[in-house]
Structures are given as C-alpha cells and as structure tokens.
Design a protein around this nucleic acid. Structure first.
Lengths: 324, 324
DNA sequence: CTTGATTTTGCAATCGATTGCGTTAGCGTA
DNA sequence: TACGCTAACGCAATCGATTGCAAAATCAAG
C-alpha cells in the first residue's frame, strides 16, 4: 500500500510504531530511496539552498578568488549542518531577469547571493516578492533585501588611519568603485583623509579588478605614471599582493618606501613576504549569520540585516613598530 | 494550449518558428520560468552533477583543506561551463548504502567522488550498476569504477629520489596509510628507498591526518620520540607546512638540518617560508579530464580511467643547489 | 468541391511521491 | 448480535512539466 509506505518512511504517527519500523527495514533492505524530484514537486520544497556568485563584473573566474572560495566553504558547512543540500549557481548571463529565472526555477528553497556585484537594483526588485534571500555585501541606503557584511566604511577607515599614523600622507586607493562594497571602502578612505586634514588626490584612486593579473597591471601603471605615493590601500588581499609584486619588480621596497594594507585577511596574507597587514573579515561568523537569518526567513519570520565588525590585523607590509 | 507552449519553449521544430518566438517572448514578459522539479520528474534528468566529498576518515572539515577546495572550484567551472548545475554533497553518514542513497535520490545525473577515502569497496559495488560515476583518486587493482588521479607511486618516487639525491638517508613518511592514495605514495617511497639500497625503518612511518593541527601533533611526536631523521616526505602540503612549523618550534632548521617535501603544490606552497618543495598535481587538467569522462559516461559510452603525470616543483624547503 | 498529404494543435497519460478524506477493521460495551 | 468509537488503511487527486498519438486545420492538386 503506497500511502502507508510513504507515511511510514516519513515517521508519521498515523502508522503504528512497529509497522513503521518494519516498513523502514524492508525499504532499507530493498535499497529503496525516495525520489527527490518527485518529492520536491509534490512538497514544493527541495531541501536545497542555492549559493549564487554574480560575476557581472569579472566573468570566468569563480575559482580564482580565495575570498569567494572560503566564503563558499563556510556557507556550505553551515547549510549542510542544517540538513540541506548546497546548489552552486554561477551566473554568467546577467541579462534582465536573471535572478527571477533562478528563483522561479524552484530548484532551491532559499538563496544566498555572495557579493552584490553591480546588481543592487535586481536584488532590490527580487526581494520585494521573494523572501528567503540573503546577500553578503555592503549595506546600502534604500536597500530592501536583507544583507550581512562587514562594516566596510569602518574597516577602511581603520586601515587608512593606521597608515596615516605611520606618517604616510599620499595613500593610493586600488579598487573598483562601481562595486557597492568597494564604494563604501572608498567612503571610509575619504573620511579618514579628511579627518587628518589631507587633501584627497583623484590621481591616487586607481581602478583595479579582483584578479591578480589585472591588479598587477593597475599597480604597474600607477608606478609608471610617476604619481608620487608612499602607501597603498588595496581593497582586497589579492590586489595588495599583486601590488607588492609590482612594487618589488620596480625595485621599490615594501614597507621601506611604500606601506601596503589589504582587505579580507585571507589565509595567504599571513604567509606572504612581507606578511600582509589586512582588514580581517570574520567569514566564519558571517556565514553563520547569513544562514541563520536565511532559515529564519524561510520559516516566514522577518530578519534584519546585520553588520560585522572588522579587525585590522597588523603585519610587516606596512612597516612601523607594531609589526607581527 | 499547454503542450504547444511546452514545445515552443523547448524550441521544438514541430511548432512553426514565428509562433515559437512569439510564445517565448510572451513567456519572458510574464516572467514565466519552467519549474525544474516538475521537469526533472518527467524527464528523469536534473541537469545537475553531484560532487561528493566522502569524509569517512576526518569528519567536519570540508572547508579546511585547500586541496579539496581548489579541486571543487575547478570541477565547478568545468561543470557549469557545460550548462549543468553543481550540487555539493557532504557525506557525514557513511553507514551501509550511503552511496546508493545518493544515487537513488535522483538528485543528479552524474556523480564525481573526490577522494576514495576508505570507501573503495562501496565505490566498486556502486559502479557495477551505476555508470555516470567518476572518482578522483588512486588507481587500485581490481577497480571497477572509473578514476582519474595522479600517478601517486611515481610522484612519491620522484620526491624521495630528490631527497636521496641531496644526500638524505633517513627520510620520514607522514600520512595515513589506510587511504588508498596515501598507500600508493607509500609504495613509491618504499621503492625509492629500496632502489637506493637503504633499509626501510618502520619507526620513520608516522600516521598523520590531513588537518593542520593533527599533522602538527604527529610531527611533534616524531621529533620528541628521539628518532633520528634528516628529511620528511609529507603526503600533503598541509602536513608538510605543519611539520615545518613543528620543526621550527623545536629549533630545527629547514632545510639546514631537515629537508621537507610536500604533495599537491597548493597555492600557499610557493608562499610559505621557506617555500615548499612539492609534488604538483595538475588539478585544472584533472578536473577537465574527470568531467570529460563523466559526460562520456552519461552519454552511454564507456570511458577508461586516466592517470596524470605529477611534476616535482623544487623550492627551498629541501635545500640543495636547485632551489627556485 | 473532394481527396489526400501535410502541418498544427491539443487531449490525456506519465513521472513518483504526498495527503485529504472516506472506508474498513478492530475492539469494547450493552 | 448490534452499535459506537477509534485506529489503520487506501483511493484518488495533486504537484507542473513532457510527449505519444489522434484530431483538426491547412494546403495543394485533381
């Protein structure tokens, strides 16, 4: 009897306990497993969380960025611990309605978007009707969706303040202002300079993508442009490491002549030469917060955005007495 | 008319071209998206590949191992490029029939198992009836399933030969022999020693798990045991890095007193101090091969196992003239 | 206008579970 | 034996697509 079996396997108390056990035993012996496609269709839930990496800006390199990779791993751990599967969605086609296409495919019960990329509007629009959606990224004004992220302004502020404290005055900024998180870090950079009474030179703001190669190019151009600078605030560790290599190639000493600070504090940061000073994002806590809030939303409750406090980890790449 | 729409969206030539386009336009405007649960059920395929990490030996640490992480990223790239989704399966419950449970859930059209763990038998059994299955790992005798992996014996042989060439004679082996791949590396280690006419001392074979902490402990115990050794062949870079730190903590110079060679050549290997000599596995090629073969098998063709040739990347951690 | 061939269209079954609701079985009591 | 009540059970609808097959529409030719 089909319905009885279904109920028995679901541990439905309508079926007497001993009968349930027997059916479960027989099913196990026969190697029977519930077909999840059918189950998903009927139940309208998939026991799956989609993790999305919008790559609107830089296509073709999911794997190359250690930050994304680590974030993914942490998210995967949090999700699987709760008995859900993880579906990785790499979005290459960000044409109109890409997010809706993912949502309406009903492949997942909830979504985590890692990084806003340039899709703030799309996210806002989707969030109006789709609730089990969480975004890792900066908190922007007029934001409808629920996000978790580091205090980018504060983190940048702390990094630049540290450089200023070392006596650095011409601090270059490397990053893509178009991305919301980077825009916020820029905000922190500007505020720190202003607070120190230093005029902000647009020639020191260099667009740099997240990949090592393009960042290296950007740093090289800055060096060759002849613009004078005595420090670099890089908006990611990869950019910082690329800049250090570009400086080394040009015979410029780090931290002797130029101090460098990165962002993220990925694992390699501590291992590089010189070890990299960086603004640490607590990804373990971030991932846990994201998944906690997502499950709250999946349960129908509302959940507010959250901000994590960054920590400046000082190492040798920016010189000064406090190295370590 | 439901059937017409379904056919139109599938670009079925039964529907005249202009009608197809119109229907597609209307569907796009209405934001209609095919429900993948229903589609999967009817079509008996999910456009999804499952990537499985059996953690029978070391539970609770998917994210911590850079090797797994990189492999996953490469696999994900290859899979998404082919228009498939990636489902991450972390297996914690390796009780009888775990693989069958995954297969019969019909959540995916094909499976990639990363690392045999201690599940050789289970894999062999599953492969008899389930064909779209590929395994990253060593090639074992009597193996039914299709696997792709580095030539572990050859790689180990090359690493140990290099140490012997540097004049090292008492070479410790760090790794878990129970795992098939490590067993093969041990085989290479033994062969290299035998070829050099050196007697193999069981006291130099130390069980070491893949996590940094446990590997550090293992190395510390080796050092404190008083057993004399002048080199370490570690079966993963993480183990090698842990060993280097343990040696440093004990005041032993690398590569002055002890040479260290790792396995995998993960990204950090080049960045550590001293930079780590390691047996490089070409994961990009490995992942591509795996997915190529998997899709062949999904198409019903047969596909043979493949072996990749490892390359010894010499850096400073083992001393000698050839450092780079 | 009819016939036959061909192109379009749509009915209805199907995939494999879950579940509301009605039916049957079982048991105790009068 | 009859009745009432509860505990088990099972029929049949449902989820939302796809597709074989038959019906309908269209068209060409006689």
């Amino acid at each position: 009897s089909m319905s009885t079996v279904s109920r028995a396997l679901a541990d439905n108390p309508l079926i007497p306990e001993d009968r349930r056990r027997e059916i479960q035993r027989i099913a196990a012996e026969a190697g029977y497993v519930i077909n999840q496609s059918a189950r998903s269709l009927r139940m309208r839930k998939t026991q799956t969380i989609g993790v999305v990496f919008p790559l609107g800006h830089d296509v073709g390199q999911l794997i190359s960025d250690p930050f994304f990779i680590e974030m993914f791993g942490r998210l995967a751990d949090e999700i699987t611990t709760r008995g859900y599967q993880v579906l990785l969605c790499r979005v290459t086609d960000t044409s109109d309605g890409w997010l809706n296409r993912i949502i309406q495919s009903h492949r997942q019960d909830g979504l985590v978007i890692v990084g806003q990329s340039d899709q703030h509007e799309a996210l806002n629009h989707a969030a109006e009707s789709y609730h089990p959606l969480l975004v890792w990224g900066g908190h922007l004004s007029g934001q409808v969706y629920c996000s978790v992220g580091t205090d980018n302004i504060g983190g940048a502020r702390r990094a630049v303040d540290h450089l200023l404290g070392l006596g650095r005055k011409r601090i270059a900024f490397l990053g893509m202002l178009e991305l919301p998180e980077i825009g916020l870090r820029y905000e922190g950079y500007v505020r720190a300079l202003r607070a120190a009474g230093i005029e902000h030179d647009p020639a020191l703001v260099i667009p740099a993508h997240f990949s090592f190669e393009t960042a290296y190019e950007a740093a090289r151009e800055l060096i060759e442009s002849g613009t004078k600078f005595d420090a670099i605030f890089a908006t990611s560790d990869i950019i910082a490491l690329a800049a250090i290599q570009a400086l080394a190639a040009a015979g410029i000493d780090v931290p002797g002549q130029v101090s460098v600070v990165g962002f993220d504090d990925i694992a390699i940061a501590a291992q590089s030469t010189p070890p990299l000073t960086s603004v640490q994002q607590d990804l373990a806590k971030g991932a846990k917060t994201i998944v906690d809030l997502l499950f709250k939303r999946m349960a129908g409750e509302d959940a507010p955005s959250a901000t994590l406090l960054p920590k400046l980890v000082v190492r040798k790449s920016c010189g000064g007495a406090s190295a370590g």
